[in-house]
């Protein structure tokens, strides 16, 4: 605001106006279906998940192993070189506890969301996933975790073939 300006325009609609239905509401029921291309790299990644395996791509330029995998290296801007099977475990890079759904409504039970650095990939190569079988207050950054897979017949080649990651059980 400038001290030279006396009045700022704008007319507020209050929550009271909403309650009294002074605000017209139109709801559209739009149904959009998308047939996403998985892409070359993610296609192979999904095929691996179906087999209970996590695969990354190696770049011989920067010598990084990338996950999620891509067919080109964005840093070297060249084709990546080979497929590498990674381990189905890793370390928590960061985590949070979600009390809300996608539409900002409240969840009945909070879920733990994490970025997990996958063992066998390069440092900081993480994926987004959920944590389970652990209380939120017990989770730590750098905690070792392992994938809990759906049963073989239930896996469909999707990121949800991993149900969640749980604290690693020492062998």
């Amino acid at each position: 605001m400038s001290s030279k300006i006396a009045k700022y325009e704008g007319t507020e609609i209050t929550p009271e106006d909403l309650r009294r239905e002074r605000y017209l509401m139109t709801t559209y029921h739009t149904s959009l279906s998308y047939a996403w291309s998985s892409g070359v790299a993610t296609g192979k990644y999904l095929a691996g998940l179906k087999e209970g395996e996590i695969w990354g791509r190696r770049c011989n330029g920067c010598e990084r192993t990338l996950v999620p995998p891509r067919m080109y290296c964005e840093q070297c801007f060249r084709a990546t070189s080979s497929w590498v099977r990674l381990e189905d475990r890793g370390k928590v890079v960061t985590y949070s506890v979600s009390y809300v759904n996608s539409d900002a409504s409240r969840r009945d039970q909070p879920i733990i969301v994490a970025v997990i650095e996958i063992a066998g990939g390069s440092p900081m190569m993480g994926i987004l996933h959920l944590l389970g079988e652990v209380a939120p207050e017990k989770v730590r950054v750098s905690m070792e975790v392992e994938a809990v897979w759906k049963s073989q017949q239930d896996r469909e080649g999707a990121i949800t073939d991993i149900v969640y990651f749980r604290p690693r059980r020492k062998e």
Binding site: W36, T42, L46, P68, N101, V113, A158, I159, T160
Partner: peptide
């Protein structure tokens, strides 16, 4: 759309 959205 493939590797993140299905997680909610």
């Amino acid at each position: 759309h493939t590797t993140e959205r299905p997680l909610g």
